[in-house]
C-alpha cells in the first residue's frame, strides 16, 4: 500500500477500535442495551476487503457484529452510536439496535441477527445486480460457525448454479460464541467447504491488512469480472467476549495474548515506522484526536439526541 493509503486506513482502523471500545464503556454505563458484539481484533478483515472493493457502491451485508462494516461503507459514526443509544437520530431510527445497523444510502444493507440469515439475502442482491446489469458486487461478511447452517449450503449451491456476483467473506475467529470451531465443524478449513459447489475460494491471514488486501483484490476482481461467486476465508481473532456477558472460559489467556501479538493496527503501524518513517508520536497524536472526536462529537450527539416518539411505535411496520 502507498503511504497515503496506509495512513488513511490506519486511521480508519483506529477509529473503529476506539469506537468499539467506547461502546463497551457505554454498555457498562447502561447507555447501550441488548446484545452488543464488538469487533476489536478483526479490523483488518473488514478494512482489507473493503479497500479492495468499492465502499458505498458495492452492496454489503453482514451479521450482528456490524457497526464497523457500516462505518466503512460510509455510515456516520454519530448515527451508528445514536442507534446504539436507541435514539430517533440513529441510522435505523432507534428501531434496530446494535444488531440491526442499516445505511441503505451507502449500500450497507444491514446487520441481521439470525446466524446464516444473510447468506441468501446476499445471493438475492447479486441476482438483482445480475438482472439490472450494473458493475456492483454483493459482499457478505459472516463468521465461521455460520457455515454450519443449512442456508450456507443452500446459498452456495444457488450462487454457483446461477453464477451470481457475490463475494462471501468468512471471518474465521475460531469460535461460534464459546464453541471452538473444531468442536462443531467436521472440516475446520472453511475455504474447503465450498469446493463441493465448485466455488473458487482462498484463505489467508486476517490480521495483516496488506495480506488481506492482496487476497481480496483477487477475490473482488473474480466476482466483478462476472466469473461467479467467490469465498474468502480470513483467519482472525476477536479480543473481547462474543457478546457482553462472556467470561471467555472456553479459551486460554495465553491464546489471547498470542493473537494480540499480531494485532492488525499495531502490525501496520510498526511496518510504517520501519518502512515509512512514521513515528509513534504521530500515531499517539492521531489516537488522541480520534478519542476527542468520539467523545465530543459521536457520544455527545448520541447523548443529546431525542428518543423516538412513542406515538410512532408502529411507524415502519408497513408502508404508509
Amino acid at each position: 500500500m502507498k503511504l497515503k493509503d496506509r495512513k488513511r486506513v490506519l486511521r480508519e482502523m483506529v477509529l473503529a477500535r476506539r469506537f468499539e471500545e467506547r461502546c463497551y464503556q457505554a454498555y457498562i454505563e447502561r447507555k447501550i442495551g441488548g446484545f452488543l458484539h464488538l469487533y476489536p481484533g478483526q479490523e483488518a478483515c473488514c478494512y482489507g476487503v473493503m479497500e479492495a472493493a468499492r465502499p458505498g457502491f458495492d452492496y454489503v451485508i453482514t451479521g450482528y457484529r456490524d457497526h464497523v462494516h457500516a462505518i466503512k461503507c460510509g455510515a456516520d459514526p454519530k448515527a451508528v452510536m445514536a442507534e446504539l443509544y436507541g435514539k430517533e437520530t440513529g441510522c435505523s431510527k432507534g428501531r434496530g439496535g446494535s444488531m440491526h445497523i442499516f445505511d441503505v444510502e451507502h449500500r450497507f444493507m444491514g446487520g441481521y441477527a439470525l446466524v446464516g440469515g444473510p447468506f441468501p439475502l446476499a445471493a438475492g442482491m447479486a441476482k438483482a445486480i445480475q438482472m439490472k446489469g450494473g458493475d456492483e458486487i454483493a459482499i457478505c461478511f459472516l463468521g465461521d460457525s455460520a457455515n454450519n447452517q443449512g442456508s450456507f449450503h443452500e446459498t452456495m449451491n444457488m450462487a454457483a448454479l446461477w453464477k451470481l456476483p457475490v463475494l462471501f467473506v468468512c471471518e474465521n475467529n475460531l469460535y461460534g460464541i464459546g464453541t471452538a470451531l473444531e468442536r462443531s465443524t467436521a472440516v475446520v478449513d472453511q475455504y474447503k467447504r465450498v469446493c463441493a459447489y465448485g466455488i473458487e475460494s482462498d484463505v489467508c491471514d486476517g490480521q495483516d491488512i496488506e495480506v488481506v488486501l492482496e487476497h481480496a483484490h483477487k477475490a473482488v476482481e473474480h466476482v466483478r469480472s462476472r466469473k461467479g461467486p467467490y469465498f474468502l476465508e480470513l483467519k482472525t481473532y476477536r479480543y473481547r467476549g462474543h457478546s457482553m456477558s462472556d467470561s471467555r472460559g472456553y479459551r486460554s489467556r495465553e491464546e489471547e495474548e498470542q493473537w494480540k501479538q499480531r494485532d492488525p493496527i499495531n502490525m501496520l503501524r510498526d511496518r510504517m515506522i520501519v518502512e515509512d518513517k512514521y513515528t509513534l508520536a504521530e500515531f499517539e497524536a492521531m489516537e488522541k484526536e480520534i478519542d476527542g472526536y468520539i467523545e465530543n462529537e459521536v457520544i455527545k450527539f448520541a447523548e443529546e439526541s431525542p428518543d423516538p416518539k412513542v406515538e410512532e411505535l408502529t411507524k415502519y411496520v408497513l408502508a404508509d
Binding site: 452492496y59 440469515g117 441468501p120 445471493a123 438483482a128 438482472m131 444457488m158
Partner: peptide, 18 residues
C-alpha cells in the same frame, strides 16, 4: 429444493427493486 434459501434469495433481490 431449498425453501429457506430461495425465499431468502428472493427477499435479497427485492431489496434492490426486483
Amino acid at each position: 429444493i431449498s425453501e429457506n434459501g430461495y425465499t431468502g434469495l428472493g427477499v435479497g433481490a427485492s431489496f434492490l427493486g426486483v
